Amino acid sequence: MSHESTTAGPLGGTDPIAAAAREPGVALVAGSAGVIGAHAAAEYARVPGWTVRGAARREQSGTAWEPLRADLSDADGARADLAGAADTTHLVFAAYVERGDERQQIEDNTALLRNTLDALRDAPLRHVTLYQGGKAYGAHLPGFRTPARERDPRLLVPNFYYAQEDVLREEAARRGFGLTLLRPEGVVGYATGNPMNILMVVAVHAAISRELGLPLRFPGSHAAAEALYQVTDAELLARATVWAGSTAAADGEVFNVTNGDQFRWAHAYAAIARHLGVEHDEPQDFSLTSTMPMHEETWQRMVQRHGLRPTPYADLVRWQFGDFLFHSEFDNVSSTVKVRRVGFGECLDSIDRFTELLDRLAEQRVVPAAGEARAALTA
């Protein structure tokens, strides 16, 4: 499909659904139990004519796509588990494993991609989408050049993003399929039992603060509260994924994909407090990782009284992720000019989106609704 034949969307870019519907295929989303993967699979499932499968180690139920139980860390296992996906035309690779050792992180995550590509070696692959992130620019280090642009050079510091990209480009050149690399930052969305998600950090911290009758405080340093930050809505990223898989101009390219704005956590927390009807106070620098597990009993009482989903507390939020983001004291800004020039022009107001998604979590009974009364404090 030529780039010129794509349909203009309401924001002057490409309508992902209309573009993909012109040339239906079979999508396989690796890592479909995660926030990014689940949203990507759901978005592909909305496209008329497409067959969609989602591969994950955890059980998936009630999905709009065909679930596959797959262990991609083992080469032989991956071939067996993905045997039913031999007709895949579009691979969306969102699988990831966290490792404390950087060398092991590179080795294990590169193996996930290699094993998946090998398992699909006879599939009629037309396109592969691979996700990276701000670490490609050094967002995990003490400061980096902003706004980050796709043409910025790699870092000397090893990174599994680089290793995966090299593997993918080599395979694409050898086998003749297209590829696109998308770089989101701070993905905001929800997937059951997936705790590495800044939305859940904010939602659960705010809910417990309100339950205890406490003002909502940004749980990080003053400098981090005032630094510019950016996020990527999981639904927006999913639409960019479908767009990339059906747009010739995206082939071989790397694109930053964020909501298109920046904000300060100080302002976001103030807006969230107003939305929830609680007081707001100055930032208070403390460790979420050490503090929030001690409020598990409070959360369990909230689950019972408000009829919330009985997700194990340990699976609800990864507090370490919040501590990392909320102690980043430098601006985190990526340019999205490149992706907009090529045709994907969607954008969102991030603070407004936080409040919208908090309401959605309440509708799904993940957290209490903003209007529900908190319990009286007990001794």
Rank of each mutant, 00 (worst) to 15 (best):
A163N: 08
V204Q: 02
A234G: 02
E356M: 09
E346Y: 10
G307V: 03
Y96W: 15
H127P: 01
R169L: 13
D349P: 05
A248Y: 06
N256S: 15
P312D: 01
F263S: 09
V303L: 00
P147D: 09
F93W: 12
L179I: 13
R301M: 08
T146Q: 07
E363V: 13
Y131R: 05
R22F: 03
V339C: 13
T192A: 05
V97T: 15
G12H: 09
Y313M: 00
A270C: 06
P10Q: 12
D76S: 15
N159H: 13
L228I: 03
Q230F: 03
A163C: 05
G252D: 01
A75N: 12
L276E: 07
G31C: 07
R217F: 02
R217L: 04
V333F: 06
R58A: 10
L72E: 07
T355A: 07
Y44L: 14
Q104S: 10
G13M: 06
D315G: 00
L316T: 00
G84K: 02
R309E: 14
H90I: 06
S32H: 06
R305Y: 02
V342T: 15
A223L: 10
W65C: 03
I208E: 00
V47N: 08
S73W: 03
D101Q: 09
R69P: 15
R53W: 06
V254Y: 11
A163I: 05
D108T: 12
E43T: 14
L125M: 09
Q164L: 05
R145P: 08
W299Y: 04
P368W: 00
G343F: 08
L155F: 09
G12W: 07
H327Q: 13
F93C: 07
A139S: 15
N194T: 09
S221P: 13
R374G: 09
A225W: 07
F344D: 04
V257A: 10
R239G: 08
F321W: 10
R175S: 02
T336Y: 06
S209V: 01
A85D: 14
R309Y: 03
F321P: 00
A85W: 10
Y131D: 04
E23C: 11
S246H: 15
L276D: 04
R121H: 14
D118K: 07
S209I: 00
D359P: 11
G371C: 08
R46M: 10
R114P: 14
F286I: 05
A191H: 12
R239N: 09
G143F: 08
Q104C: 05
R126G: 15
R169P: 13
G100N: 12
D118S: 10
V333C: 03
G49N: 11
